[in-house]
Design a protein around this nucleic acid. Structure first.
Lengths: 149, 149
DNA sequence: ATACAACTTAGACTCAGTCTAGACCATTTT
DNA sequence: AAAATGGTCTAGACTGAGTCTAAGTTGTAT
């Protein structure tokens, strides 16, 4: 795994360097989006990225936001977290970690990988390799029950 | 956790009993859908359930399929597995297990929970409880690289 | 029987995400 | 300098999984 980032927030020059280190051409729009993402470790939806980048930076189209987020994910710059159907989040936390998703509030928080140990034999098929390993723990406030009492 | 099922395939009478055990009114359509799901441990999309139930049983509407699958999930009868955005699968395997998702083929396979050990302190917020814990390992065939070589 | 609640349905609707065709921009070639 | 090249960006049309609505049906209790 390529080295990513461990000091938030990142300045534009650092963002540009990081993109280049990952083999991504640092265009205006890509730097804007990455600069937004790496202000702090955070989880944002594509929609939120679109809205925030268009508030704080120059206008970027919807297509570019989706393309750029997909590009960052494929190059390993950020992670895609699937919490619920139609709630894909993009995670700028670059350290190994897992997730806790609160079904009631929609809030997603992190668990450092060091706090959990996953051990065992995966027995992966021949000729395949691990691309990612996502542990999402779904929690719910005790009083709000959807199942019968 | 309520007891579910451990002998596939289930007959209609057993399906009906199971629904009642979970506090779900066993209507015609719900029994049809559950009977389809519990033929064997399998992963099906809502679309596949809709198509298969309408082939092998009497016609059921799209809305009912979605409503029923959601109902089964909320009552803990089946599990929802999020593999990729727009690829939500419903899993009739009722034993504790994890998943391996092949990004190239779209195939989803199981890992018995016994093969992996997850240990550690979750440090959950006060007043919350675990609803589910989903570990999805995403794999990819070694030759097909999406990132730059 | 009548009433009431729960369930189902067809079809309209929503909205996250994709696609397209053209515009833009930087670099190289002539 | 002009033209060609290749990668990127954009507006807006489009797709399709999933939801909603309003009306009809079924089951159950009184």
């Amino acid at each position: 795994m390529n080295q990513r980032n461990d000091n938030f927030p990142l300045e534009r020059s650092q963002v540009r360097a990081m993109l280049e280190r990952f083999g991504i051409q640092p265009t205006q729009q890509r730097v804007d989006i990455a600069h937004l993402l790496f202000q702090r470790p955070q989880h944002l939806s594509a929609d939120q990225v679109l809205a925030q980048v268009n508030t704080a930076y120059r206008h970027v189209s919807k297509a570019t936001v989706y393309n750029t987020l997909g590009l960052f994910v494929r190059h390993g710059l950020i992670n895609e977290v699937l919490t619920a159907p139609d709630r894909t989040l993009y995670d700028s936390n670059t350290s190994a970690h897992h997730h806790v998703y609160n079904l009631d509030t929609g809030e997603l928080s992190d668990i450092p990988a060091g706090r959990l140990a996953i051990q065992g034999d995966l027995g992966l098929p021949e000729g395949t390799e691990i691309e990612g390993m996502d542990l999402v723990i779904r929690i719910r406030s005790r009083h709000s029950q959807t199942t019968k009492p």
